[in-house]
Nucleic acid binder design. Structure first.
Lengths: 121, 121
DNA sequence: ATAATATATGAACACGTGGGCATGTGTTCA
DNA sequence: TGAACACATGCCCACGTGTTCATATATTAT
């Protein structure tokens, strides 16, 4: 089964398993799905945001509370909450000057638990 | 219940819910656990790596195969495989010149599925 | 209205990271 | 032994991102 690939600079060899590659290629999701997945995980990929999400799973809290809990500036927390909002991971409710944040769905906890399972071998 | 916090520049107010914060603080995981979680998600937070992981869940593949499948350079794939190896997400098996990669455990797929659930509302 | 306070946001900066390029390592084949 | 090839890796740079600082917005109290 000879290769008839044209002038591709990468890995032109008979070792490449064209059948496998083609089979996998057929089953591939849209490019966009992978980007969306990566973007979601990107949001989880910061310890500050992880802490915020974990904390909000324990209790609804305002920005002040979270800043105090994590010993970080209000601004930093606010910026991160924005990211979490845009990713639809948290929702908020306003009560006077105070804005209370909470998780917007169950998936967060489920994903966390799977990840913890992995970390703990 | 007045605040007795010293000279902290952040959010010194009576609105802060000290009881809630303290309760959540008690239940907090180690700092390190959060970092490990974030680091794991960081690995998932790149579309190239996501594609590689997804592909390896479909079939064991060599570096060449993956590069061809994703239409990327061998170097780029190799760099990313290194990241995945260091995160213990993939394992490899050498056969002559060719190195075959595959997923190292089930968690990856489970985490993916939860994430897809979230994306699809 | 003015002051005080909770939160949001824009600009700027420091830092981390993905991938290209060049090269090194290990293996097969002539 | 030497050429060809699969893969790994170090260096580099362009780009993205988290936090700080300063400031804006919204709400309450005086």
């Amino acid at each position: 089964m000879k290769k008839k690939l044209g002038t591709i600079e990468r890995c032109i060899s008979d070792v490449i398993h064209e059948d496998v590659v083609n089979k996998v290629k057929e089953k591939m999701h849209d490019e966009q799905t992978f980007y969306e997945l990566a973007d979601l995980f990107k949001v989880f990929g910061d310890s500050t945001r992880i802490k915020i999400l974990w904390a909000l799973d324990e209790a609804e809290m305002c920005v002040c509370d979270i800043a105090a809990l994590l010993n970080m500036s209000q601004s930093a927390i606010s910026h991160q909450l924005r990211v979490l909002r845009q990713a639809n991971l948290v929702k908020n409710r306003k009560e006077g000057k105070v804005v209370y944040y909470s998780l917007s769905d169950e998936h967060v906890k489920l994903i966390f638990n799977q990840a913890l399972d992995h970390i703990n071998e």
